[in-house]
Simulated assay, not measured.
Amino acid sequence: MASVSEAKSLVLDRITHRFASGTMAVSDINLDVKGGEIIALLGPSGCGKTTLLRIIAGFIGQSEGRVIIGNDVVDALPPNRRAVGIVFQNYALFPHLSISENVGYGLAARGVDKATRNKEAQRLLDMVQLGPFGERLPRQLSGGQQQRVALARALAIKPSILLLDEQEALSMADRVAVLSHGHLEQFGTPSEIYDQPQTLFVNTFVGTANRVTGTVIATDADGVKVALDAGGEIIARAPKPVRASDKVIVCLRPEHLTFVSDDSGFAGEIGMALPLGATVVHEIKAKDGSSIKISQARTGGTPLREAGTPVRVAPLAPGLATVFPQ
């Protein structure tokens, strides 16, 4: 979800939508997007991403809440008056129109003369590196090329808000909204989402995370001390309050772990080693039967650890592990 030409802010105020069947699609979504900010909606299939985009664009009227673009509440406006461009998951190109006509369709619907819209369509096709393909039909292009045509068509109307459905936006997003079952799990920068997940879902959905169980020993200013069921202790961060004796789930990212020679962390043995170019992934079998993966940079000449080798593993620094109540 990205703001573009003459970018305006976007506020979703308590957006809730129920389908006619009674199924809850999205529930109490609150987002405040600044003009010019790039926002990625992230979540599994069926989490409510597309429904939310359609509500913003005006194709669906939400059950509750308000959509505010700039200073205007746009709930009563039809899609063609919201200055919102959208690139659908399946691109939704008109199969009987040429590529140039597809790009200029929105301009034609707004009464722009043919010469002007043809010139603008050509400019946009040149921008997405499809200049020579204007007279072709959509079926004569690859999937990636059709995606670029859909993007050019969305940009042709000079939208204040550009919505991209199922696009690779995470790498360029200023902030990320993670959805699950219609609920907003977390809204923050990519670094915050990855390094400081606020829920177990975010921690395990974004990136890779090992999950082990344990019991809280104590909490203090340094973090939460946890006795792992696999043996050993670690210091972790806790997004939600936990108390001594609470049973918890501990999440550890493979790249946040390292082999140690002291008695910190927990003990296990090498199950397997998998070299992946510049990195190597070791699978560690812990004493309680759980399996932990550790990812490390692979330096030249470093031998792989053999299966069955006893090892001890710990986080690179206190607080890199995250605990959540069971």
Rank of each mutant, 00 (worst) to 15 (best):
V281A: 06
A321H: 02
R117C: 03
H282R: 04
L137T: 10
H256Y: 07
R175H: 07
D195F: 14
G301P: 03
V248Q: 13
V87G: 10
A297M: 10
Q326W: 06
D13L: 04
A236L: 01
G301Y: 12
S171D: 11
V103M: 07
G265M: 10
V128P: 05
P197Y: 00
A321Y: 01
L41F: 11
L137P: 11
V11L: 05
V216M: 02
G46A: 09
T50M: 08
P78N: 12
Q89M: 02
L52A: 02
L200K: 01
V250Y: 08
I292F: 04
I29P: 13
K247F: 10
I39H: 14
R153T: 11
T258V: 06
P318M: 02
G48A: 03
G61C: 03
G65L: 00
N90P: 10
Q198N: 00
A25D: 01
L97R: 15
E269T: 15
L77I: 10
Q186E: 07
G277Q: 03
A57L: 07
N71W: 03
P254I: 02
Q62H: 14
R123N: 07
F187V: 02
G308A: 05
Q196D: 02
G65T: 08
E192W: 02
R136A: 07
R82C: 08
S160G: 13
V212H: 02
E120W: 11
V242P: 00
E233T: 13
V216N: 06
I38K: 14
F205V: 05
V224G: 02
S98N: 12
V216L: 01
L276K: 14
A286C: 12
I161A: 09
G22Y: 12
A317F: 10
P325W: 00
P44M: 07
L163V: 09
A20S: 15
L252G: 10
P78R: 11
D72I: 06
N203E: 09
T50C: 01
I249S: 14
N90I: 09
M1A: 11
F88P: 13
S191V: 15
F259Y: 11
S180M: 07
